[in-house]
Amino acid sequence: MVKMFLTKSDQKIVKEGLWDSNPITFRVLGICSALAVTVQLKTALVMCAALTFVVAVSNVIISALRDMIPSKIRIIVQLSVISTLVIVADQFLKAYMYDVSKQLSVFVGLIITNCIVMGRAEGYAMANPPWKSFLDGLGNGLGYSCILILVAVAREILGSGTLLGYPVIPQTFYDHGYINCGIMVLAPGAFFFLGIIIWIQRKISGYTEES
């Protein structure tokens, strides 16, 4: 199905963000929000959707404007596009998913300063046509999402014994002395999993910092 819509070079752009230069495991960007919103899967999912929306759409808009933006004030222009989109996402969440929006607190607003969004706008959208920029934004958003979801699933199961709020660890475990791992609810829990994911991914891709 994917092949019907995307040409080979298009697929490559998406794959780039998903795997080869994944914003979290390869560029190690956006770590702050990755630590903060992955205690529960629900907040992570909403955050992923919001970020993917912002990075994809801002890439399109900035790419469409790229020949008109004076290079001296380009960061300001990029920021105003991004922050407009973030406010849209934030208001949408407040209107339709008030509880989750409360839990995410400032982190939706902080997408404005997320290095991934700024990085893609400055590094890709400013030099490429809108369709390609859209795919690049999508790929990076999804790459970010994949890692966040993996971390959030692990943290919610180990830290709270639930998944999306439903208990997944059988009661007999608790009866026999099993206890939820408290450190998984704290920020270090996310660091452990991010580290392990980065380790595994670099083992597979063979990438090293030194080379």
Binding site: I179, G182, I183, M184, L186
Partner: peptide
Amino acid sequence: AFIFFAYPAQ
């Protein structure tokens, strides 16, 4: 340290 922060009650 891991046990200390993960399972403080024990």
